[in-house]
Amino acid sequence: MSASDGFSWYLPLWALVATLAMTSILEASRGLGFSRLSLPFLIGTFVTDQRGRAVVIGFIVYTLGGWLFAFVYFMLFSSVRIYTWWFGALAGLVHGLFLLTCALPLLPFVHPRMASEYHSASAIRQLEPPGFLAMNYGYHTPLSTLFAQIVYGATLGGFVEVANWMNS
């Protein structure tokens, strides 16, 4: 089976590289002071309130999630038979917008440790809510998140494009 069929034996490797690229961008944006958003931390705190443990658990789950999510991207590429970096970037952009406008705003209602605008002052919840476009974590958060998601999609699409080019 060729890469253009939506699958390659190298797919898990590409998925890992794309996930690492995305994670690196998000972490770099934290280190550079653009945003405080840490998706691994938010994921990890679903299961523990200990910061150090939450970061480790969250990072493992997030990496696995990014790795598995790559298969959805490949299914998307395969379904429309477009295997290019720019289509991957477009998919990443849509994915990022969904994350910012739907998934993160939902988080305060499902996360056991996150406050929401609707919780009373009596609720002992220690994580601040993301707010509109997650801008409570810094006004540049939407940009860094979208950029990371675009790089993730473009990396996956780019790998398939290169593989196709090498096979042709």
Binding site: E128, N136, Y137, G138
Partner: peptide, 27 residues
């Protein structure tokens, strides 16, 4: 506990330097 969490983590955008004031979410 919440206040210390805010002091240490919400101020992350400028760390290790600290500004004299921040908004409610550390911006």
């Amino acid at each position: 506990s919440s206040y210390l969490g805010w002091l240490l983590h919400a101020t992350r955008l400028t760390r290790p330097n600290l500004r004299i004031l921040y908004d409610l979410y550390g911006r």
